[in-house]
Design a protein around this nucleic acid. Structure first.
Length: 286
DNA sequence: GGTATTCCCTGCGGGC
DNA sequence: TGCCCGCAGGGAATAC
């Protein structure tokens, strides 16, 4: 379930492997992904040299030498990695770029929730999702985050998952950041105090940076661009721990469904409103 | 316009 | 052992 740290890890891995390579051939599977894709891949890509790779929210942008780009979303189970051309694939590989280096860039996606699109030169990445992408977590200050959160009556968990409010946060890191900030996922955005917003801003940045250091969280399928998994799953405080004791107060953690997503929190430490103390440090990551 | 809900998709795990 | 069912969740579509 790739979120910002996992996508950032994939991009960093691929930056060491892809730029400068020339695309020699394109292969697509007969099973289309959930999001329809263009059929003219060969015409658009063969002969093009791969340039820089960027990340925007959960989207991966592969720049080409003609200023067009390939934009990738990993969905739930998407894997984008470079491997040798003769490495065997399986029925879940949906897209292959054969490179002049003898290697391949492969997109594998078991649930087919991911997407690949060719973007002509000059089209901004923000136009890909249906709504505009919000800022990166570290490109906004607590005041701006507060304006975006407090204008909504939705639960703060739902607001954090909204990519128009802030790009990159998904279910795991929303739960972890809310726990670190001692804010209930059920609290309404409009009810958050300035102090709580400041703590949430700090917690989001801290959790995401620590997760990037650990190469993201591998629950089931996620691997980086070089095929290595993540390590942050060993440091999760609440996600996936419903019913287990809270690491702060030892009371059982609760699991609810908020905004259609499983949500894990401590009802004792994370009160819907009221004064919260300082953000607690996240667990240290090796 | 804002918010909530449903759908897509497939592997896994639990219950029987 | 094998079958059935619920769960996982990001983004788009739809409903209210």
């Amino acid at each position: 379930m790739p979120e910002l740290p996992e996508v950032e890890t994939v991009v960093r891995d691929l930056r060491a492997l892809l730029p400068g390579s020339v695309i020699a051939a394109v292969w697509t599977s007969s099973r289309p992904l959930r999001v329809a894709w263009q059929a003219e891949w060969t015409q658009h890509l063969v002969g093009r040299r791969i340039g820089h790779l960027e990340r925007r929210g959960k989207w991966i942008i592969v720049k080409l030498d003609d200023n067009a780009s390939v934009v990738v979303h990993l969905g739930m189970t998407g894997q984008l990695r470079v491997c040798d051309s003769d490495e065997p694939g399986d029925e879940h590989v949906h897209f292959r770029l054969r490179l002049n280096t003898g290697r391949e860039l492969r997109f594998r996606d078991i649930r087919r929730f991911g997407s690949l699109r060719w973007m002509p030169p000059g089209v901004p990445i923000d136009s890909v999702p249906r709504g505009r992408l919000g800022p990166e977590p570290w490109d906004t200050d607590p005041e701006e985050l507060g304006r975006r959160i407090r204008r909504s009556r939705r639960a703060v968990k739902a607001i954090l998952l909204d990519q128009q409010v802030m790009a990159g946060v998904g279910n795991i890191y929303a739960d972890e950041a809310l726990f670190a900030a001692k804010i209930s996922p059920l609290a309404r955005g409009v009810d958050l105090t300035k102090r709580q917003v400041r703590q949430l801003h700090r917690a989001l940045n801290r959790v995401l940076q620590r997760a990037i250091q650990a190469r993201g969280t591998t629950i089931r399928n996620y691997v980086g661009g070089s095929g290595l998994g993540g390590g942050f799953q060993d440091h999760l405080q609440v996600y996936g721990r419903g019913g287990q004791p809270c690491r702060r107060c030892r009371r059982p953690l609760t699991r609810l469904r908020v905004a259609g997503r499983s949500t894990h929190f401590c009802p004792q430490c994370q009160r819907p409103s009221g004064a919260a103390s300082e953000v607690e440090s996240c667990p240290s990551v090796p």
